[in-house]
């Protein structure tokens, strides 16, 4: 049952991880970051919030069927992957985990599976 720091350390142990953070995407607030971020942690949080808003407020993709809901977003650049994964909580919080993955060293499928397991440990799901 790790706390936030331990959780981020685990995320950084995923092969190819460059940086990780937890962001409140409802408000765009960084709640914890570690390793590298594309700019700084505030820019990271603001960017994650905007991307999440674009997907959840605007488009039809996040809930294509009635019981559907958004799980993660993957942004692929030429040098890396940016994973934004929702952390479901049973209290009011709109949280995502951000993971920056090196494209050469990282494996997207492995990273997603690891994050899924980690998220369960973090909030007891």
């Amino acid at each position: 049952m790790p706390g936030v720091d331990a959780y981020l350390d685990h995320a950084m142990a995923i092969p190819g991880a460059i940086g990780a953070g937890i962001v409140d995407y409802g408000t765009g607030t960084p709640l914890g970051t570690t390793g590298g971020t594309p700019e700084d942690d505030r820019a990271l949080a603001a960017g994650a919030a905007r991307v999440m808003a674009a997907v959840t407020r605007g488009g039809p993709f996040s809930s294509a069927t009635p019981d559907d809901d958004l799980e993660d977003l993957i942004i692929t650049s030429q040098s890396g992957y940016h994973l934004i994964r929702r952390i479901p909580t049973e209290f009011d919080a709109r949280l995502v985990l951000y993971l920056w993955l090196d494209r050469e060293r990282g494996n997207l499928a492995v990273a997603r599976r690891s994050l899924q397991e980690l998220g369960g440990h973090l909030v007891g799901a």
């Binding site: 049952m1 790790p2 706390g3 936030v4 331990a6 959780y7 937890i22 409140d24 408000t27 607030t29 709640l31 914890g32 952390i87 909580t89 049973e90 209290f91 009011d92 919080a93 949280l95 440990h121 973090l122 909030v123 007891g124």
Partner: peptide, 21 residues
């Protein structure tokens, strides 16, 4: 609450962080 297993440490921290802001 964490010691008695009602909450995970992560939940408590995230909840408190949210309340602080």
């Amino acid at each position: 609450l964490v010691e008695q297993g009602h909450l995970t440490r992560g939940e408590l921290e995230l909840c408190v962080l949210g309340v602080i802001y």
